[in-house]
Amino acid sequence: MSLPGQFSDPRVLTLFGLLAVSTVVWLSLGLRARTRRERAHAPLERVWHPQESVPLTPAEEHAFGQVVSRLSQGSPGRLR
């Protein structure tokens, strides 16, 4: 079954198809960005780890501090 009149032109069908696809992509990207922004404001849940109940030796604490200092952010948004 073909569409009547000017809607049967393949250029019009292509235009409507591109418009529909771009609208869906625009909406989905907007919703993803909105979700990401809302999730960033929510506090992270604290997850208990079994090693938290085991006291660390001074050498282990030093090694952990070295790793954390390398992973901490120096200038905004960049890792050292």
Rank of each mutant, 00 (worst) to 15 (best):
G5Y: 11
G5R: 08
Q6I: 13
D9L: 10
D9I: 11
D9H: 14
P10L: 01
R11T: 12
R11E: 15
V12S: 07
V12G: 08
V12R: 15
L13W: 10
T14Y: 15
T14N: 14
F16G: 07
L18W: 13
L19W: 13
L19V: 14
L19Q: 12
V21N: 01
T23N: 02
T23W: 05
T23Q: 02
V24I: 11
V24D: 02
V25Y: 03
V25C: 04
W26F: 13
W26R: 10
W26P: 03
L27V: 11
S28M: 03
S28E: 03
L29A: 04
L29C: 04
G30W: 04
G30S: 01
L31A: 12
L31E: 10
L31I: 15
L31P: 05
R32K: 14
R34Y: 14
R34H: 15
T35N: 10
R36C: 04
R36T: 10
R37D: 07
R37I: 08
E38F: 12
E38C: 04
E38K: 11
R39M: 06
A40C: 01
H41R: 10
A42E: 09
A42D: 05
P43D: 00
P43N: 00
L44V: 09
L44K: 15
R46C: 06
R46S: 08
R46A: 09
W48P: 12
H49T: 08
P50R: 04
P50S: 02
Q51P: 05
Q51M: 14
Q51G: 10
S53F: 10
S53L: 10
V54Q: 10
V54F: 08
V54C: 06
L56P: 03
L56V: 05
L56F: 10
T57V: 01
T57Y: 00
T57F: 00
T57S: 02
P58M: 00
E60S: 02
E61D: 12
E61C: 11
H62C: 02
A63G: 03
A63N: 05
A63S: 06
G65Q: 05
G65S: 03
G65L: 00
G65N: 05
V68E: 14
S69R: 08
S69E: 03
R70F: 07
R70Y: 07
L71G: 03
L71M: 07
L71H: 04
Q73K: 13
Q73L: 14
Q73R: 14
G74T: 09
S75T: 12
S75L: 09
P76W: 04
G77D: 01
R78P: 02
R78G: 03
